[in-house]
Design a protein around this nucleic acid. Structure first.
Length: 282
DNA sequence: CTAGGATCCTGTCAGC
DNA sequence: TGCTGACAGGATCCTA
């Protein structure tokens, strides 16, 4: 998915289009993608918990949206605002084959598209949002986590590769496959390093790097491919502009000129510069 | 308890 | 061209 910066981008953008607007109709095209009974109400707030987006309504209910791997939210009204997993859907005619839910407003439609159907929209009581099983488990985001706290957490998973550890939302919240790779590169840590082998200094550097790469992404409107269009017509282009290792295997490292490689860690494709990110002896 | 692998689902791409 | 397997910006469930 869509990692924290992308969901933050969605939240900020949607706010300007749907806040205080009434939902006039909800069409569910794929049962798996919508949990609960759709009700028509007015949007009173948009919030984000890690990678989950919450749309609060004035009937005491909230829509919890998780895009998982391939979810997208595309608002189509006077302007089009698209964010999430980048694809041609951002500019395509909608609804299409991948449209799972359509949330209609008086002057626009919010399309929830999701190729792989891992994502979902779920109706929950607003008062229960923070007790939701997913949200409840979320750890602090990098900006709220202090280095000592982070270091202590790493000791509880000392045998797991650091990449797996920082992808675990109950340890540190917000990173996904892109920003995990970028943060490890930025802090010069090999992704397979056992979490318990990191020094306090390295843990602190990694935390700083996580904040840095995500701050930069949020500032540019989230990462994306070329088809991504923001509300103002500009493109969010973290991958093109800022990614230094993600999907850059075979290309030279911007820091040392060495060759970026792709390996598999924790079941995920992982990009690194073997020269800058030295493996420690186990 | 942790760690690692399979799994949900659709689509695309590399390699035969 | 057609088939096959691998893989994908996530999280959960199962097993050891």
């Amino acid at each position: 998915m869509p990692e924290l910066p992308e969901v933050e981008t969605i939240k900020r953008g949607l706010k300007s289009f749907i806040l205080h607007k009434k939902i006039t109709k909800i069409e569910v095209l794929c049962d798996k993608s919508f949990v609960g009974t759709p009700a028509l109400a007015t949007v009173v707030d948009l919030r984000r918990f890690g990678k989950a987006l919450i749309i609060d309504l004035d009937n005491g209910q909230s829509l919890m949206i998780h895009l998982r791997m391939t979810g997208q939210l595309i608002y189509d009204g006077e302007k089009r605002y698209a964010a999430g997993h980048p694809s041609d859907n951002f500019t395509a005619k909608l609804p299409n084959k991948q449209t799972r839910v359509i949330i209609q407003f008086k002057d626009g439609c919010l399309y929830f598209n999701d190729q792989r159907k891992f994502g979902f929209i779920k109706v929950i009581k607003t008062s229960e949002v923070e007790n939701d099983s997913f949200i409840k488990k979320l750890a602090k985001e990098p900006w709220e986590l202090n280095p000592d706290e982070f270091y202590e957490k790493l000791q509880k998973h000392k045998a797991a590769p650091i990449k797996a550890t920082i992808l675990d939302q109950s340890i540190i919240c917000g990173l996904g496959n892109i920003y995990a790779d970028e943060a490890l590169f930025e802090s010069k840590i090999h992704p397979e390093t056992k979490s318990g082998k990191l020094t306090k200094k390295e843990a602190s550097a990694l935390l700083d790097a996580a904040k840095k790469v995500m701050d930069r992404s949020i500032a540019s409107g989230g990462s994306t491919m070329a088809t991504y269009v923001k509300a103002d017509g500009t493109k969010g282009d973290y991958l093109e502009k800022f990614a230094l290792v993600f999907r850059r295997d075979g290309k030279p490292c911007s820091r040392c000129g060495g060759k970026i490689v792709k390996i598999r860690v924790a079941g995920r494709g992982t990009h690194l510069c073997p020269n800058c990110q030295r493996r420690k002896d186990d």
